[in-house]
């Protein structure tokens, strides 16, 4: 057990003109994650602190916050990694709703804009009344699965948007997670939507806006490596574009 000063950003749009800081003295257990300290404050010291969390096992993606200036998944981040003062702020590069809660509207819009679903000219399973587990599923080799699996591991925690220097300057930038997600479907052997997603990736504020700071991959708590996805998508987009010069549209697949 060690006492730490936890500094929480407070902001209530009905009362505060701008965010302020509030300090709490918290008796912290050695095994605690950063989230445990915030929950302790909420339960035992100040019930008005607002934050999001749920699974506390690093898979629901709810509890991303800035911890001493770095975006962290707080349920996965050991409190013992920090000294006796820990500064907890809402994720950077997002509008604040209240305290540690940020607005997801922009992120969800970007997320949806890459058409993150399997696009097929014709559905694999035609007669839905009687699908057969083998006949009506796609065959996919372990290698084909491996092509995209890593990019399917994103938990939408949005840490990469907080870390990204391009998002900071260019809020409309599609951003790491959304690009990785669209790219994940492009790489999936079951998908035929690369052509349909082509313009999304070639447009302004998409892959070519990325400055390769690689911050997104460094902060990713799930090793998704969105920077690699952006790099691959950019390369693929250039190839598609080059092919487009000699092939009629739609003839690249």
């Amino acid at each position: 057990m060690v006492e730490k000063t936890i500094i929480i950003t407070r902001f209530d749009p009905d009362r505060d003109e701008k965010p302020r800081k509030q300090e709490y003295t918290v008796p912290c257990e050695d095994s605690w994650k950063v989230l445990d300290a915030v929950n302790f404050i909420k339960d035992e010291i100040d019930a008005t602190v607002s934050h999001r969390w749920s699974c506390r096992m690093a898979v629901c993606g709810s509890c991303g916050m800035m911890v001493n200036g770095e975006p962290k998944l707080t349920c996965k981040t050991a409190l013992s990694d920090y000294d006796d003062r820990v500064d907890i702020e809402p994720l950077a590069n997002f509008p604040i709703v209240r305290d540690l809660v940020v607005e997801l509207d922009g992120f969800m819009h970007k997320f949806e804009s890459v058409k993150p679903w399997i696009i097929r000219a014709k559905e694999q399973a035609e007669d839905k009344a009687s699908l057969h587990p083998e006949k009506d599923t796609f065959g996919q080799s372990t290698e084909e699965l491996g092509n995209f699996k890593q990019f399917s591991m994103c938990i939408n925690c949005m840490l990469c948007y907080s870390a990204c220097p391009v998002v900071a300057n260019e809020p409309d930038f599609l951003g790491p997670a959304a690009i990785a997600l669209g790219h994940r479907y492009n790489l999936d052997s079951r998908d035929e939507g690369a052509e349909e997603r082509h313009d999304i990736f070639r447009g302004e504020g998409t892959v070519f806006s990325c400055s390769y700071a690689n911050e997104c991959s460094e902060v990713c708590p799930k090793n998704v490596d969105p920077a690699a996805a952006i790099n691959q998508a950019k390369f693929g987009t250039v190839i598609d574009w080059a092919k487009g010069l000699v092939l009629p549209r739609g003839g690249t697949k």
Binding site: W117, I118, L131, T137
Partner: peptide, 10 residues
Amino acid sequence: KELALLENWG
């Protein structure tokens, strides 16, 4: 059938 659909959906 349901799991086959889930497979079809990615």
